[in-house]
Write a protein that binds this DNA or RNA. Structure first.
Lengths: 111, 111
DNA sequence: ACTGGTAGATAGTAACGCTAAATAGCGAGA
DNA sequence: TCTCGCTATTTAGCGTTACTATCTACCAGT
């Protein structure tokens, strides 16, 4: 996968991170690690930190500073009510797009 | 749907248009109309034309000018071999992303 | 002192879709 | 004739996003 995934992630990475935080509060470094586990090997940490700043400024997450034993303090993000609403909307938008794409794909490769 | 769809379309709209052209050669105005039929009501024509210029410059489509009865000549785009390769790659990338998203969604809303 | 793992911040860049406006050809109605 | 509307394409400028690269900071082990 080349640059296609980079462009596709625009708009979806935000939802992905919100979904991760929704399942359980987490801090940036941890989120990056989880993404790598899930197959997103090439996502840079800087990308995640910038995204977290963004969703914090938009008011989708609450932040709590927690000291770490092994480095600087962690910023633990948890999804709030507004974030949940936004995530719901994200899933609706995603479903819309996925349905259309599936239809297109099926038309292109008929069984 | 607000701006989420706009961001999500980045990277996918290109594949969508390539898939449309793959199923049958088409010109810009026609592609815009088909998109509207398929539910993408808000996609501006300017977006499509710019995208077509891009995929032409990248060599994914062949172009043929065809006179129209009702206006300026049409530029009919058809997918070439290179475009087909790129479209295949697009579907692989899309499937990767869709699989991960589906997994995340299922985790978030367990039955 | 140095390396490596943990943890976060940020400036600059490229790509993409959107907005808005312009140009152009043609037919129908006032 | 003039204008409106539909067809058809082009383009400049804008906002958002992910990536690259680099920096700071803390601690443990060698």
């Amino acid at each position: 996968m080349g640059k296609q995934i980079t462009e596709m992630l625009k708009g979806t990475l935000e939802g992905i991170v919100l979904a991760i935080v929704a399942s359980q509060p987490a801090y940036g470094y941890e989120i990056t690690a989880r993404l790598r586990e899930q197959g997103f090997a090439d996502i840079a940490e800087g990308t995640i930190y910038a995204l977290l700043v963004r969703i914090e400024q938009r008011g989708f997450v609450d932040v709590q500073k927690v000291p770490s034993e092994k480095g600087p303090p962690r910023k633990v993000y948890s999804l709030n009510a507004q974030g949940r609403d936004y995530l719901d909307e994200f899933w609706r938008t995603w479903s819309f797009l996925a349905d259309r794409l599936e239809q297109l794909h099926d038309e292109g490769t008929p069984s």
